[in-house]
Design a protein around this nucleic acid. Sequence first.
DNA 1: CTGAAAGCGCTAACAT
DNA 2: ATGTTAGCGCTTTCAG
Lengths: 343, 343
Amino acid sequence: MDEITRTKRNRLPSMYDVARLAGVSQTTVSFVVNNVASAAISQETRDRVWAAVHALGWRPNAMARSLRTRHSQTLGLISDEVVTSPYAVRIILGAQEAAWVGQQMLLVVNTSGQCDIEQTALRFMLERRVEGLMYATMYHHEVVPPPELQSVPVILVNCFVADRSLPAIIPDEVQGGYTATEALIQRGHYRIAFINEVIPMPALFGRLEGYRQALANYGLPFDPTLVRSCHSNAHDAFAVAFALLEREDRPTAIFCFNDKMAMGVYDAIKRLGLRIPQDVAVIGFDNLELIAAQLYPPLTTIALPHYEMGRRAVELLQASPAGENVPPTQHYLPCPLVERASI
Amino acid sequence: MDEITRTKRNRLPSMYDVARLAGVSQTTVSFVVNNVASAAISQETRDRVWAAVHALGWRPNAMARSLRTRHSQTLGLISDEVVTSPYAVRIILGAQEAAWVGQQMLLVVNTSGQCDIEQTALRFMLERRVEGLMYATMYHHEVVPPPELQSVPVILVNCFVADRSLPAIIPDEVQGGYTATEALIQRGHYRIAFINEVIPMPALFGRLEGYRQALANYGLPFDPTLVRSCHSNAHDAFAVAFALLEREDRPTAIFCFNDKMAMGVYDAIKRLGLRIPQDVAVIGFDNLELIAAQLYPPLTTIALPHYEMGRRAVELLQASPAGENVPPTQHYLPCPLVERASI
DNA sequence: CTGAAAGCGCTAACAT
DNA sequence: ATGTTAGCGCTTTCAG
């Protein structure tokens, strides 16, 4: 790429400048640079145009083009704390990479949960004529997004509205809980404890449901004394696990609501002089690389499909015919097992 | 906000539509909605205009405005793996929040380190006439960014070019190492081990330098046998720490190159039946919430100023007079001590 | 094979 | 106090 020539009044060169230099009309330049099939331009002219383009260092002005074509080639992503959280951030990555293949760019704003920021972000994005909007949350829960959201095709990511009237992409918590439990059962465990979260949320109910389904499916009894709950942090889980493992008939496997809890459970097991996974198998949830891969032994866990949710969201937005709303389907994405060495 | 009326051929209402409905000229509408001081419009007219705006659900078209004003109000952020990494992501948050106060939006793309994506991202951004560009990396290191980067004001974040010819915002590794060591010294430790990274990078050299400076400053000898290195993961650090602590004259404090290592060091200390911090104090680096806060006892560590680097970057971009390059200063941002309970 | 001309939605200097 | 007018840089129909 050559030096950029500034034309009249220190401006970047425009298509008009290229046309003059090449000795053709602006139309011709447009046809050439956009490779318009309908208008067959002679090779000789094409060469002259491209030469002028390079000589001036011209680049198309996307805003002018968008204004004319009425396509901004932009998608918006409004999130609460997604950018702050170490895992949900992959929603953005998935969305951005999918937008990329559609030649679109992503406008992202993190509202930190503040309504006024959310409002303004929405306004800014609508003014920029985003062709679709994603509304994403850090963890799977119900939301009541601002109504103006719907002035453009929208899709919820990792969240949903109470009446399910908006399309949503959410993790399949039940399947995740099922998969975790099944993995343990298949390794011969039948006394499997589940340390659940205590704050009501879809993940809590879904994973428990999956746990029960798996036990039932494999003909194992559901023992309520093996299901405990506490706040999902390492410290509280340590205490719960410790109590669970001191029992005469201690469980041989522990399914943790998330990886942070697994961290505390590891400590409890080690403190009791037990080995993982020989004496007690542990499975987590979330697949936080930072924890799961660093723990010893590395933690087997269930991954939340953040990347896929982001990708899927823009694919649905893109698939929706120009300006049409995405049908309000609730898309449940699977939570895959990530095998390491703790079960 | 009222229903959005679609005017002629299913289009969103334009300023012209508002003008017609209000019975004024488009200019008047522009003056009213932009609150132009020079042209005093009667209150009665203003009201009519606003009424029409709301009646039609009109919103300004940012692309049209930008085309006219020649200001895109957009900044670009190109990063390698920033979006993937759990901590560096805060660069984006800082940048976005600062852009926000300047009424600008952020276009972000994560290149996953691929040059072709980087090229295209750059092209897309320049076509969208971003008013400034940030080039950020996941970890502090030298880069050779594509030359076209400089067709617009640019600033490097968490990285730098060899000849320092581009402005950069980077963490002050030396101060970070100094602060960590000093914190330990001030708690009475004088046999302080340092488990360093083994792959050459600014952090490795800077933190070691800070460690030495602190020792020297407090009149403590530098004992090379207390400085070890290994790959910065929990597993390798476990082994190194174990060896270090088995020594007769074992260190009473360990400064870890990062928090992941500290995780392994914790395991080693516990395995040896020692207590943290009573028998051995531990300090980390990176302040990975996920690890530092979940570890028991919670890990005291040094934070990398990712958020501040992002914020500072856009502030510098904004401060730079229209289109002028940011002066090629290298801005070293402090790495603060985050006190928890391990020292 | 190429060009003229209209217009996307908006701002702003200049009139009135 | 408000309107006229000329673009911003580009696409696209219609002519030639």
